Simulated scan of single mutants.
Amino acid sequence: MTAPALLGDRVTRDAYPMLDDLASDATGPDVWRTLGAAGRLARVYRDGDPRRGVDPAGLGALLTAVDRRCPLGTTLAVCVPLATCLPLLAGGDGPAARTLAAALRGDAVVALAATDDGAGCDLTSLTTEVTLRDDHVEVSGVKRWITNATACDAVLVLARHRPGPHFTNFTWVLVPADAPGVRAEPADTDLFDGAGAGHLFFDRVRLGREHVVGGVGRGLSGFAAHIAVERLAGALWAVGLCRRVLTETWRHLQDRRYGDGTLWHLEGIRQRYAAALLRARQHQALTESLADAVATRRDATAAAMLKASAAGTVERVLDECAHLQGAYGFRSDGPQRLRAQAALFGIGGGTTEVVLSVVAGATADVLADLDRSPAPEPPVEPGR
């Protein structure tokens, strides 16, 4: 019997053979350098240009390939820069343009520092500040739980340049990781090995005005546009992750002896597995139907739906697969540990509750989309 999951694995392996030479515990920078040197990072964008937006098929294939080969933290370290950092850098020149070119070659890793000390995902309450002068800027503040914090060459920092929550009060600044006043501290967790997760401290970091990216006051508008693509990336990654774990579980159930047969021959187990498989297939279908709206139009509602779907699907699939694998699921790289790591899908890039509020706010439009069904074919007259 041949499963679509197995075919997907074969295609991905053939497309990214350079990843097979990496160690099983390869870090985000290891993978980033390998993919960049092979020219594969640019391929996730239309015409190889981050300004043109992502190509969902290309991005999904790359994330699936990395997920198949590397720990979850490593895939996270690749996902965030591709979906958010590089497209943001494409809106700048000078240091931003040079860093973008180096990143696409695999020579530079860029971290995204948006979430703030004490403010979390409420970006309008962040306290990191950038003071704007005629010939320089100065950045001060603390960023928490930043992917690639301990392994990056540069950091895209979202900071406020004046008080208040108005969306024009925030600006992106590209900060070299080795600039005086920058300090990185590893996060207190071992769940995201390979991600370089940590906290960043900026103590009056002084830089030239050319380090402002995308223009003063365009920080939140730029972030809003690109967070939609990051949510799409998470949905694409969820498809590959669920396919991988479901395939592994299916093999386990067919191999595990029980009585005169295997666990796969128990109807109750088959039904539980099928329910998880169905959920993964539903998420895949939703992702395929909304991917273009997010990639081309930055549709915030579509992105929120994908984010909520990915979080719920990963949780359901990993819970079921962890249970179906029994004691085998507790191995060091098994689904019991993976489901703790994958809780990230319901938190990073906006919690499930936050994105569901976005969907609720667009109820009228979503209901209208549900009503846009094809017109029925006219009945055939007798004798025709």
Rank of each mutant, 00 (worst) to 15 (best):
A295V: 00
E138S: 10
A177W: 01
G28A: 14
A197P: 11
A274S: 13
M18W: 05
G350R: 03
P335M: 00
A304V: 03
G259K: 10
S309N: 09
V31K: 10
P335A: 06
V54T: 01
T131R: 15
P376R: 14
E320S: 15
V109E: 02
R51D: 05
A293I: 06
L191N: 13
D67C: 00
L100S: 03
S24I: 08
L22S: 00
L220C: 11
T150G: 03
A225I: 07
L370K: 08
G346P: 15
A342Q: 05
P374C: 06
R270G: 02
V314A: 04
D203F: 03
R337V: 13
V355D: 03
D190I: 09
V137M: 09
F167Y: 11
R46T: 02
A77P: 13
L191E: 12
R68Y: 12
C321V: 15
L191I: 12
V354S: 14
G349V: 15
V66T: 07
G8V: 03
H136N: 06
A103R: 03
G92L: 08
F170A: 07
L132H: 11
T313H: 03
G106E: 02
S373N: 10
T74W: 07
A65D: 01
G234V: 04
T287W: 05
D135K: 14
V78D: 04
L104K: 10
T115F: 10
A195E: 08
A111V: 06
D117E: 09
G349K: 14
G214N: 05
F167Q: 13
G73C: 12
A238P: 15
P378R: 09
L126Y: 09
E320P: 14
T363W: 13
P163R: 12
L100H: 04
G334I: 10
V213R: 05
P376V: 12
P165Y: 03
R204Y: 04
L232F: 03
G346Q: 10
A195V: 12
G141M: 01
D178I: 06
G58C: 03
G118T: 09
D107K: 07
R272L: 12
D20T: 12
A15M: 06
A197D: 04
D25E: 05
T128S: 05
R243P: 09
H323I: 11
C242D: 13
V182R: 04
R144N: 11
G350S: 00
E381L: 15
G268W: 08
P87S: 06
G217C: 08
A293E: 11
H161M: 05
D135H: 13
A37E: 11
G208R: 14
G346A: 12
L344E: 10
R144G: 00
A302R: 00
W264Q: 07
L82P: 15
D49P: 05
A77T: 09
D30A: 10
E377A: 14
I146R: 06
A151G: 05
F223L: 15
G91Q: 08
R52A: 05
R272S: 13
